[in-house]
Every structure is written in C-alpha cells, then in structure tokens.
Amino acid sequence: MSAILELNGVSKEFAVNGRRTKAVDNVSFAVEKGECLAIVGESGSGKSTIANMILGIYGTTAGTIAFAGEPLPERREKRHRRAIQLVQQNPLSSLNPRRTVGASLRLALDVHEIGPKAERAARIGALLQEVGLEPDYARRSPAALSGGQRQRVAIARALACESELVVLDEPTSALDVLVQARVLRLLAELKAKRGLTYVFITHDLSVVRNIADRVAVFERGRLIEIGTTEALFSSPTQDYTRRLISAVPVVSDEEAAMRQHIMGDQA
C-alpha cells in the first residue's frame, strides 16, 4: 500500500477585519490508495478548510500536501484537477441556477475531453442513472430539484471526471436515509470497482462507522486522534472523541446501550 495523499505539518490562517484565526493548526496525516478516510469533529474545526487546501482552492499557510508522491503545486495543473474532485457541503449553491443539470455535468466531460463528443450526452444520462436519477433530469434546472436530488447531481459531476481521489464534504447530509444508503453503497461500489480513494467529511458518526476504513478526529483546527474505525469506536483515547460518540442520536435502544458502554468503559 502506498499513500496517495500526504499532508505534512499543514496550517492555515485567515484574517477577518485584522483579526487572525488559525483554522488549521499543524496537521499531518496520510491517506492510503483505495481507502476511505473519514474526517469528523467540531463544527468550525477546519475540516472544510482542509478539503479546500487539498483541492488547491486555498493555499497553505505552512506545510506541504503531496499527491501520489509529488508535492502539489500552489497552481494546480489540469491533471491534478482531474485526479482530485470535490463534492461540496452545500447542495443548493453548488449547481448553477441558470444552467441545466446536463450542462453542469457536461462541463466536466468537456474540460477533460472524456469520451468522444457525440457520446457525451449518453454518458450524462448514464451518470445520472448511476446516482439514481432518470436521464431526463439532464434537461432540468437545479431549482426544480429537491436538496437531495441536487446532491446526487453533484456526486455525479465528481464521478464524471473519473478521478482517483474524491473529497466528499458532507455528501449525504441532505439525503433521506433510504437515498443515503443507496448513495453510500454506490460510493462503496465505485471504490471497489474503480479503486477510488475518499476523504469523507461528515458529522454523522453512524455513517462513519459503516463506511470508513479509518477515522480522523479534529478539534479546534488540530488533529487529535486518528485510527481504524474499529479501534476508534471501541476504545477512543480522547475525551472529545468519547463525547462525540456518546452524543450520537440513535434510533434503537441497543445503540443507546452501546453509547453508554463507551462512556462507562472509560469513566
């Protein structure tokens, strides 16, 4: 196994009205090829900022990010753009309200010249089907889609690039659990089939438990704990992690019992 993505001492500072905030503070971790690394943590702890730095939307204040062994340049080349894709946290604004769903998907195919021109329309239909939408949604405008439908289009767009690494920033938080289960299975399938690697940012620890290979926990811009999903859920070492797990809202009493167990174990 080799690391496809490596962050080394990465930090990011922002200045708002002269006040500086450290959004990400000296973070290092590696993502193996073909794995799903979940990032969880406090809201505002820098998870999306890390995603943005991996994608080159923000530069780093300090530290380096390497992809497939080479350090990523500040200005990304086209091959990097194709290799690393993003599914944003916010499904409503991630699609252009004045362009059809089809046009938004087509952009990815056109920019990277994927498939012959004549076949791109069919490809768009197939992509939509892959995420559980009818091909004729290509003609719709985003305003005529529900939040969940939009998010599926955004996932389809990331798949369109045929990338190696997909950063998913809360990709299923707008979906109902049935659709969520379908999308998560789809993601798992694609991972197995195409050897995709995911960085999966989410607040839903129940999802993490079932999809991630490893989990990284963030608090106030710092990586406080990282480990395999099994280990993290059965014996969390950090107090914050324990509080997170114990606060997960659950739907059955057995789960509630397990939460209790984790708290009890360490107390």
Partner: peptide
Amino acid sequence: AVPRITGG
C-alpha cells in the same frame, strides 16, 4: 436504512 452506530 438507518446506519447503526453498532456497525453492521
């Protein structure tokens, strides 16, 4: 369809 914190 709800994923469980207990895994599975």
